[in-house]
Design a protein around this nucleic acid. Structure first.
Lengths: 323, 323
DNA sequence: CTAGGTGCAAATAATTTGCAGAGGC
DNA sequence: GCCTCTGCAAATTATTTGCACCTAG
């Protein structure tokens, strides 16, 4: 919010030249939130400095887009709008035709499907734009609601934590059940340890969530920003059902590995999208925690499965060891 | 293609007046395929009739959009383009920034996610636009490929049939396995009968598919138009794994019911989107077939479960029958 | 005869460009 | 001093509008 430019411009090497005017325009632009029309920016800049021409602002915007500081978005009106990319990742839009306001959301699920379609058509996608036009709740009911604009990074952090918590919860559930159902004492101990760790980690995450909410009491009530189906019930939900249906410890371990891996991947890949922000940090830390678990699980799996189905490739290098 | 207007205009009561000029413009417009710029249409119309002014064409287009004959699309250039809705349902776009061509696709999966997001935000969505910008395969490899434009309804029919066939195949697999694994002779007979029906139906669908391809030899090679994950392996794929894992006949029946119902819903809902076309017909016929199966399954389920878990509501109307 | 469609030319609206001058390194 | 930014005004592009006229019902 109160961040000054250097960091920002550092996103990509500024292609054009720095100059007083540009910095001035950039400064005004960055102070704004939401989607700004070019002319609105001219208006705002002129409020501070009368002598700036429209063309200069247009040129500055052009430069900002090239430099990756701003994104040009078309919200279906006749003109373009601009939003800055700082702490504001690519997202999709819900656009109300009645009040002309727009709100944003993220959906890894949709992104994944888009990627699939593109790759099926061997199309190399650089950017995708999804706009949902319609009428927002406020316009239909007449009630006023929280202004949705801005604070995207906080919403992201909140939803990241929620997903992480849901994942931990389902993981805890999974490991607890697995420990109970375990046949092998070694397996039982392993699952118990994992469950214990999940419990601790869960506590930490919940504390962090409470702390985040304490900073902004309205935060909890804000609508979902990050939609991710896979995490609605935690990434282990699917696996947890399996336990108690007579699967072996080894199978349970395998399921756990799959779940942890999926979780690790998701958090790592998605965390990378954001510029520096709390949400990104949460995502990446969580990814790291999952990776640690994953490693432990894989080690455990190897130990538990006394004779691997096939010799591991690394051992099959030379024919020295006989079968 | 060679369809004349009456049907088309009938889509919605034509709001404005019919007039020589408009019909002329409309005619030219409908003969085109793909996305037409307003000025391009002016150009085309003037080739037939010199004396038509730009304003008239613009007004005609406006009217067509209002009448539901045309859709105004923004492909991210500075101007709008128009496409006619006849045999051309709402779809998404892949837009090549290099050759400026765009190709279309459908994705019920994405649509479903969009609906979920909208409803989570209590946003009533009227229309959603998804554009994927990037570079197409032809531009990257230099090779020329099948022109993708047009013939959307044939592609839709082709993909509808593919999905239907995959569904039938997985259904056949499911019922065959279930019949083998059945414990109850009545259950076995039921599953066998269903498997038999699926086989017949599958044959019909495959014949229809071959017939469709015969009409246009290039059709098979064209890229996927309708992306639907649920059907990649047939809608029964998930259920089929279950069989042989010691589930009861009743559980298998329940799974079958779920699968058939999902399939029925999908085909019915999605079929409804299209204007009259072969694809729509395939979808709706298939939905009907699934409905018939579904009814049979439900009847069978009731018979097989001799004592329902709870008394059915319809019987619990009066307190005459004692527990 | 009259509502609405049509042509022409002018208006609009967002954005870009040519050119002369100003400013930072 | 050079190169690029800047301001101003004019150009451009896509689309709309005012107005007089025409045409179908």
């Amino acid at each position: 919010m109160s961040q000054t430019l250097p960091d920002l411009v550092g996103l990509r090497p500024p292609v054009g030249k720095r100059s007083g005017r540009r910095e001035q325009i950039l400064n005004v632009f960055l102070r704004q939130e939401g989607h700004l029309g070019a002319d609105e920016l001219v208006e705002l800049v002129r409020r501070e400095d009368q002598g700036i021409s429209r063309a200069t602002v247009y040129r500055a915007l052009q430069w900002m887009v090239e430099a990756g500081i701003a994104r040009k978005v078309d919200l279906g009106e006749g003109r373009f709008r601009f939003e800055h990319s700082y702490r504001h990742p690519r997202h999709f839009h819900l656009i109300c035709k009645s009040c002309n306001r727009s709100s944003e959301f993220l959906s890894p699920d949709i992104e994944a499907l888009v990627e699939e379609v593109a790759s099926a058509r061997s199309f190399s996608a650089r950017q995708s734009v999804l706009q949902i036009y319609g009428t927002c709740a406020e316009c239909r009911t007449g009630r006023q609601a929280t202004p949705d604009e801005g604070a995207t990074d906080l919403l992201f952090a909140r939803d990241a934590l929620r997903i992480a918590i849901a994942t931990e919860q389902s993981g805890l559930e999974f490991y607890s059940r697995a420990a109970q159902a375990a046949r092998n004492p070694r397996g039982r101990r392993c699952f118990q340890r994992l469950a214990g760790e999940e419990r601790v980690h869960l506590g930490e995450l919940e504390a962090r969530y409470r702390k985040l909410l304490a900073g902004d009491p309205q935060l909890e009530a804000r609508p979902t920003f990050l939609f991710f189906k896979g995490a609605a019930n935690g990434l282990f939900a699917a696996g947890a059902d399996q336990i108690g249906r007579g699967v072996s410890d080894l199978e349970a371990l395998m399921t756990a590995i799959r779940c942890e891996r999926a979780s690790h991947r998701f958090f790592k890949r998605y965390g990378a999208r954001f510029e520096d922000s709390e949400g990104k940090q949460i995502f990446l830390e969580f990814a790291e925690a999952e990776r640690a678990h994953l490693e432990r699980l894989v080690r455990e799996y190897r130990l538990l499965s006394k004779r691997p189905a096939r010799q591991r490739a690394r051992r099959a290098r030379g024919p020295s060891a006989s079968a």
